[in-house]
Amino acid sequence: MANGNATPAVDGWFTTGDRPALLGTRCVQCGTVFFPRESSFCRNPGCAGERFDEVELSRRGRVWSYTDARYQPPPPYIARTDPYEPFALAAVELEAEGLVVMGQVADGFGVDDLTVGAPVELVVEPLYTDDDGATRTIWRWRPLAGDGAGTGAGDDSSGAGSPGATGEEGSR
């Protein structure tokens, strides 16, 4: 978990705290969900929607595919360690939203901990330290033991159906 002084590496893309979630938007008219947020015009070609609710996306999903970065990515990527330490990446399918969302994989996990279809959960962890020495955080996908992505008991996903904590976002 990120420490108390940590701030997200990008504004308004995810919540922090005990149950962090990605923040997207949902077209009020057709229900299409967008991540990153779309707040101007609905991109469903059959929809004229211009109003969107902010929604927290499901915190759990299933791995669509995965890889890792064995070599340090070029700037603007900021490596956290010197020498560089590889990290894993996963594309995760969120059933309720019908989205596949990219993310790094949580610290301590690599490609050997992943398979297509395996359940993962969203966490927030440090991404890099900025010029002022402050920790900047990012969402990551953490592998879950067993079949944790279901909709049964213990699934704390908020789903696309519930407006986010910050409420409705009006049209521009």
């Binding site: 590496a9 990008v10 669509w64 595919s65 995965y66 890889t67 890792d68 970065a69 990515p73 070029p74 700037p75 603007p76 990527y77 900021i78 990290f87 990446l89 594309a91 990219m102 993310g103 790094q104 297509v116 991404l127 990012i138």
Partner: peptide, 17 residues
């Protein structure tokens, strides 16, 4: 690149996997 460190080969690798 900034938020994910996602290079072009990383996308190709997703399809490969």
């Amino acid at each position: 690149f900034r938020l994910l460190g996602m290079t072009n080969p990383a996308y190709f690798a997703l399809y490969a996997r």
